[in-house]
Amino acid sequence: MNTRLAQVFSVVLHPLLMPTLLLGVLFFFAPSVIGVDILSPTVRVTLLGFVSITTFVLPALTIYYLYRAKYIKSLHMQDLADRRLPYFVTALLYALSTYFFTVQLRALSEISPEIGIVLGSITVSILLVGIISLSWKISAHGVGIGGCFGAILGIAVKFSQTQLLYPLVILTVLVGLLISARLYLNAHTPLQVIAGLSLGILVSLLTVWQFV
């Protein structure tokens, strides 16, 4: 793996994109599990667009503002001090997104409360990353893709969703590529990546098993 390819994997599999990826897989491979099977594909795509705006676009713009305002030194947030404020702000934005999809969109919440549950579990993961980042540099990329993998795996096993097998296989390959990329770029130590991956998987599996 060369540097350019490692950077591409780090961007394409950025943690802020994981909620869109996760819900996209569930919307179209296991819609009955989360109650969106009664919605047309067009409505699901539109809903996924709203998820992307609240969980990717708004947090990304906020982090860019923090950079431009010199609250953080780099968008890559390589220094531990640069990671704390963005993670806590992102956790707040995700909490607001969870509130929006569970309280403001009451009709949707009654059909698919699982959307709010998934977003809530991601919020918890981000908050934990922020807390850990007060003293240690855990891999947010690992947490993000680990959460995505854990949620899909948990739903596949709990609800016998065999159609999720192919997404799981592809995601397993992506996990390996992303871990390799982060290590190749010296963004994290092996322990930091493994800790992030484990945290993401654990939180998402517990959420699926207890609340979905």
Rank of each mutant, 00 (worst) to 15 (best):
E110K: 04
Q104R: 10
Y71T: 02
D82T: 05
F100D: 01
I122G: 05
Y71N: 08
L105F: 13
S112M: 05
L66V: 11
L105V: 14
P59C: 04
P86L: 06
H76A: 10
I72P: 03
Y87L: 13
R68C: 05
F101E: 00
D79F: 05
F100S: 01
R106V: 11
I126L: 05
L75D: 04
S121T: 07
F100C: 06
L80H: 03
S97T: 14
T102R: 13
V89H: 04
F88T: 01
F88R: 00
L92Y: 11
T123E: 02
A81C: 12
G120E: 09
T55R: 11
Y94E: 03
I111G: 07
L61P: 04
L58D: 12
R106T: 15
Q78G: 05
D79Q: 14
A95E: 09
K70F: 05
L66W: 07
L61Y: 11
Q78K: 10
H76G: 07
I122D: 02
V103A: 14
T123R: 02
P86G: 01
L85N: 02
V57L: 15
T123W: 09
S109V: 05
A69N: 13
L93A: 01
S74Q: 13
L80Q: 12
Y94G: 01
F56E: 05
V118I: 15
S97E: 02
S109T: 12
T90Q: 00
I63R: 00
D79T: 10
F100Y: 13
M77R: 01
T90R: 00
T55G: 04
V124M: 03
D79V: 02
T123Q: 04
L85S: 01
Y94S: 06
V103E: 12
A91N: 12
L80G: 03
Y94Q: 11
S125E: 10
R68L: 15
A69R: 14
F100W: 13
P113S: 07
S125I: 04
Y64N: 08
K70P: 08
L66H: 05
Q104F: 15
L80E: 07
P59I: 08
A60Y: 00
T62G: 08
K70A: 13
L127Y: 10
L66A: 01
T102N: 14
L127Q: 04
F88L: 01
D82G: 10
L108P: 08
I117L: 12
A107L: 11
G116Y: 00
L119E: 12
E110G: 09
L108F: 12
L93M: 04
P86S: 07
F100G: 05
T90L: 00
L85F: 02
E110T: 12
A81G: 07
L66M: 15
I115S: 05
T98V: 11
V124Y: 12
A107T: 13
I72T: 03
T55S: 13
